[in-house]
Computed example of a mutant assay.
Amino acid sequence: MSEYQYYEFLAMDRPLSTEELGRVRELSSRASITPTGFVNEYHFGDFRGDTTKLVEQLYDAHLYYANWGSRRLVLRLPSDVLSVRRTVAYRMEESLESWTRAGHTLLDFSLSCEDGGEWDFESSYQLASFVGLRAELAAGDLRALYLAWLSGLGRWELMDDDEEEYTLVVEPPVPAGLAVLTGPQRALADFLRVDQDLLAAAARAGAPATATAVDEKALAAFVTALPAAEKHDLLMKAVLGTAPQLGPQLLARCRAARLPGTREATEPRTAAQLLDAAYLHRTERVRREAQARTEAERVRALGISQARDAHLERLAQDTEQVWRDVEELIGQKKPAPYDLAVTLLKDLREIHSRAGSRAEFDRRVGALREAHRQKPSLMDRFDGAGLPSR
């Protein structure tokens, strides 16, 4: 089977220099390379560069996926915007790693599918779907980190480890708004194959999405209260572009000032409690879906039955004309008209049965058989429809 690998890098906070572009071009002769991006697809062979070092040194985001299921998203943010310390609680070997390098925090979201699962020939991703996560994280929205932790928990469950360990592992702080994800967060949940029942169970402990919304009045008051010298410094950085994450960073400071010392979640749950809650949610969801399918089938069947009744009522208004139509169709001596004639005869059988005149129907069908017994194809259709032989 054909292999496929996709590599993409983005430089968002600053473009690559001419020298840096030259270094990157040495790694691939077929990639689409610009001062802000790198894209290449491989149907054979592999990328020669060290993707981790490229993000550590040059790029702010990296996306990789292969059709055998492996997936990786790496984001780089200034450490003063998101410290690695804030990410530690969400790290899980199966889905999220974080580290610092040269004044940046790097987040490595991954999904490894080396367990012989089915190859994925349908999924397609681009970094544009995920880059919004950087601004969200810079503004203090840690839902992306919690989603990665959930993904790791789901993978961990599939490994059939000692279940006692689940009772010892405690979830990290649950960010607000898990029940209503942003577009980039939904893309990440899909990318990391977060179990939707596990996500729904986890969201029950989080604060509502309104806690993540921007309160413009509170933000205006926060900015007004900043010292004049700091405002001047911030404005200069904004004009010069030396602080690309300035907006999200100020928003994070505003939120922290409004909600000092508050918890982002209720009492932390163990992994075992979360998995049990996900199981109950899944069971209830499956029950509701089955119930909905049953109801939809009932409605569909009722509609078919009502349409059938209306059709038979129309035919019953002039059954003699229907019998004449049957004779005319048989007289054409062709397969398709034969089929239509048999369909009308089955309708007539039901009409006569409902009217209590089934004997009359049997008599007339017997006469038809007698008149057309030299037509074996028609007789086979009569037999197949269970029409009386005499």
Results as ranks from 00 to 15, higher is better:
Met1Ser: 15
Ser2Pro: 10
Tyr4Thr: 04
Tyr4Val: 06
Gln5Ser: 15
Glu8Cys: 04
Asp13Ala: 12
Pro15Lys: 04
Gly22Phe: 06
Arg23Tyr: 10
Arg25Ile: 01
Ser29Phe: 01
Ile33Gly: 04
Val39Thr: 09
Val39Gln: 05
Glu41Phe: 05
Tyr42Phe: 15
Arg48Thr: 02
Asp50Met: 08
Glu56Ile: 03
Tyr59Asp: 01
His62Ala: 08
Tyr64Ile: 04
Trp68His: 15
Gly69Pro: 10
Ser70His: 12
Arg71His: 11
Leu73Gln: 00
Asp80Phe: 11
Val81Leu: 01
Val81Ala: 06
Arg91Pro: 02
Met92Ile: 15
Met92Asn: 11
Glu94Cys: 02
Ser95Asn: 06
Leu96Asp: 00
Gly103Ser: 09
Asp108Glu: 10
Leu111Val: 09
Leu111Glu: 05
Leu111Ser: 10
Glu114Ala: 11
Glu118Lys: 10
Trp119Pro: 02
Asp120Ser: 07
Glu122Asp: 14
Ser123Arg: 15
Ser124Tyr: 12
Gly132His: 01
Arg134Pro: 00
Leu137Val: 04
Leu137Gln: 00
Leu142Val: 03
Arg143Leu: 03
Arg143Met: 00
Trp149Glu: 00
Ser151Met: 07
Gly152Leu: 05
Trp156Tyr: 15
Glu157Pro: 02
Met159Lys: 14
Tyr166Phe: 15
Pro173Trp: 02
Val174His: 03
Val174Glu: 03
Ala176His: 00
Ala179Pro: 04
Val180His: 08
Ala187Val: 06
Ala187Met: 07
Phe191Ile: 00
Leu192Cys: 03
Val194Arg: 03
Asp195Ile: 06
Asp197Ser: 14
Asp197Trp: 08
Ala200Gln: 08
Ala201Phe: 08
Gly206Ile: 03
Ala207Cys: 05
Ala209Thr: 12
Val214Glu: 08
Glu216Arg: 15
Glu216Ser: 13
Lys217Gln: 12
Ala220Pro: 03
Ala220Glu: 12
Ala225Leu: 09
Ala229Val: 12
Asp233Glu: 14
Asp233Leu: 14
Leu234Gln: 09
Leu235Gln: 13
Met236Leu: 15
Met236Tyr: 10
Val239Ala: 08
Leu240Met: 12
Leu246Gly: 04
Gln249His: 14
Leu250Asn: 01
Leu251Ala: 03
Leu259Phe: 11
Gly261Asp: 13
Arg263Glu: 10
Glu264Trp: 09
Glu264Ser: 10
Pro268Gln: 05
Pro268Lys: 05
Ala272Met: 07
Leu280Arg: 15
His281Gln: 14
Glu284Ser: 11
Glu284Thr: 14
Arg285His: 10
Arg285Thr: 09
Ala292Glu: 14
Val299Cys: 04
Ala301Phe: 06
Gly303Ala: 15
Ser305Thr: 11
Arg308Ala: 10
Arg314Asn: 10
Ala316Glu: 07
Asp318Trp: 07
Thr319Met: 13
Gln321Tyr: 07
Arg324Ile: 06
Ile330Trp: 00
Asp339Glu: 11
Lys346Ile: 12
Arg349Thr: 02
Glu350Asn: 06
Ser353Gly: 12
Ala355Cys: 07
Gly356Thr: 14
Glu360Val: 14
Arg364His: 09
Val365Phe: 00
Val365Leu: 04
Arg369Asn: 07
Lys375His: 11
Ser377Arg: 13
Leu387Ser: 02
